[in-house]
Design a protein around this nucleic acid. Structure first.
Lengths: 347, 347
DNA sequence: CTGAAAGCGCTTACAG
DNA sequence: CTGAAAGCGCTTACAG
């Protein structure tokens, strides 16, 4: 009756418990089901796949009963080899530690699961080589499609998939001039919504904290920006360091639009350490709007990207399903505290 | 030369760009390579898999050259059907929105990638049915193993995998009396380290905020706890609400150990809204210690679980590789600001 | 509506 | 060291 977890804790900090090993069970095949249902494997396949040939109701019932009785489980590997479709979709993520990418990845997995697909993931860590390697492995596994959430700029990693005849779609960003489909949030619009809101507050100096690269979304933001520009890696650490440097030089702006939540969270942490109150000394609006931003201190005002809709569209596009009109897919301003508004929790 | 991303923005907020469709390329097979290398498919297989038969150096060179020339890519589906090993590992996560599980999942994916395995993910959303469904799909895909990061209490979802002869390992938690292997952080030890640290600060009232369930890690924590106990769902929202209720009733403790980072972040947000300064009015130590906690305001003091090591051990256990001694795998106290210590950034 | 058979691309005894 | 052949478990024309 003792809790098996604490039972052998023994102060080691990690608990490793031996599990029971079982001999590999012999799997039930369609031939077994056919034998029991007194029909052929072809008919079993027709029943279990609902086609492509019709089956008499009585036969169908016998097959279904036999399958249930024997605990039959379809072997997707064998089906994949014969039919050419594995039911697997490969997903490359640059950095699941970033809440924006993590949330996007999660939404994509959900959309794929709803479409009956299994998601194979790989993290590229922003490294084009690892990204290419992952795609290569996906193709070897004969995935039915590849979704590339790319932050890297160089090359066109989708090319190898297209060459193999495997559908691909970029999400968030795609390399310059790539002919592959893209589903991306409109970061340019997000930045202007954020900037406009800060300007309505009447702050004298509003700066944009963008990423280091001029490629992709970040580049589009920078190109569209007309005011003071700050640049730094899109990590909490880098943003925190930059904030400290700026403060030391007395160059902290009054209002700040950050390209990413990661940066906003880093700025918030540094500002708190420095004793610079947000929003009184420094007002912030971030452009990703991942769920995490509702629980920072103070809560971040964000331009929220419609990640769920993006994921749905990417999956439909990949699976070549009819796409609905993207009418409701705008980024929307979510006003909380960091911009200087009283915020939803001000009372 | 215009940026293709912004080119068709048109105020829609989401950009959907048609991609080029290519006819399915005919894949190069081992037979093609064999023909070009003037040898048999068996020998091609021996060369490309480094065994199980030896091959003459000259033949090997011809095969390698032919494979490169033709751009041969091994078909893992066909290999899986024949050899019985797909190279795929299934990973069930209860909630990737939780930074603790997200980080754990990421570390597992990294460890699996290093072992040459591809990770198939599914999110259960704490729902036992979805969890069972995911495992069923993994088995149909003939994964070589299943890793279950389970938060749900009922049943023993690993049973179906074991019955199929597929290796399974639980991470974080396993159902009561399950015979399956478990790799888990020692949450009981974490709680006592956290509590001890708060007591060293001399706070009069130190409470534990635990989850709602008595199963698994949370239950072990509760069982080991000797002081004031608070309970609530392990979400930011629930923890924030609880904090507000407590404050309204004047029952906020002086020191608080939270079972999870999610709860700590929720408490922090609520405390800030209420004007209760952390750590001056309320000191907090959290027991997960995911990377996010370094950037909260104030930075959270945590008992950090060794997620990377846990992931490595789980993968070794699953793959039946020799395990190193888990000597260095203790949870360790990371002192930052929320406990009342000056913190690493106090100057 | 049903069934015998080919074949997806590999791996692996087996025989040379 | 090399090669012809069987077979993994399905799906799918094809013939009845």
């Amino acid at each position: 009756l003792r809790n098996p977890v604490s039972a052998s804790s023994g102060g080691r900090g990690i608990l490793l418990h031996g599990g029971v090993k079982e001999g590999a069970a012999v799997a039930v095949t369609m031939a077994d089901v056919a034998r029991r249902a007194k029909t052929s494997v072809a008919v079993v396949s027709y029943v279990l796949n609902d086609g492509p040939r019709p089956v008499a109701a009585a036969t169908r019932a016998r097959v279904l009963a036999a399958a249930t009785d024997l605990g039959y489980r379809r072997d997707r590997v064998a089906a994949a080899l014969r039919s050419g479709s594995s039911g697997l979709i490969g997903l490359v993520l640059p950095d699941p530690g970033n809440p924006y990418f993590a949330t996007l990845g999660r939404r994509l997995e959900e959309a794929l699961a709803r479409a009956g697909r299994l998601t194979v993931v790989a993290n590229s860590g922003y490294d084009p080589h690892r990204q290419a390697d992952a795609i290569e492995k996906f193709l070897a596994a004969r995935v039915d499609g590849v979704i590339i959430v790319s932050a890297a700029g160089a090359g066109d990693p989708a090319g190898v998939a297209r060459a193999a005849g495997t559908p691909v779609v970029y999400v968030h960003h795609r390399p310059h001039r790539s002919p592959t489909a893209l589903v991306a949030a409109d970061h340019t619009a997000a930045v202007s919504i954020a900037a406009e809101h800060l300007r309505e507050h009447g702050y004298d100096r509003v700066a944009l904290l963008a990423g280091l690269t001029d490629a992709g979304p970040a580049g589009a933001m920078v190109a569209a920006w007309r005011g003071e520009l700050l640049r730094g890696e899109c990590t909490r650490e880098a943003a925190a360091r930059l904030t400290e440097d700026l403060a030391a030089q007395g160059r902290l702006p009054r209002g700040l639009v950050t390209a990413t939540d990661e940066q906003a969270i880093g700025v918030l942490a540094a500002a708190a350490r420095l004793g610079h109150t947000v929003p009184d000394r420094l007002a912030i609006v971030s452009c990703d709007g991942s769920p995490d931003t509702g629980f920072t201190v103070p809560a971040l005002t964000v331009v929220e990207q419609p990640l769920t809709e993006m994921a749905r569209h990417a999956v439909r596009r990949l699976l070549r399903e009819p796409d609905t009109a993207p009418g409701s897919l705008r980024a929307r301003l979510v006003v909380r505290r960091s911009c200087g508004c009283p915020g939803p929790d001000a009372n």
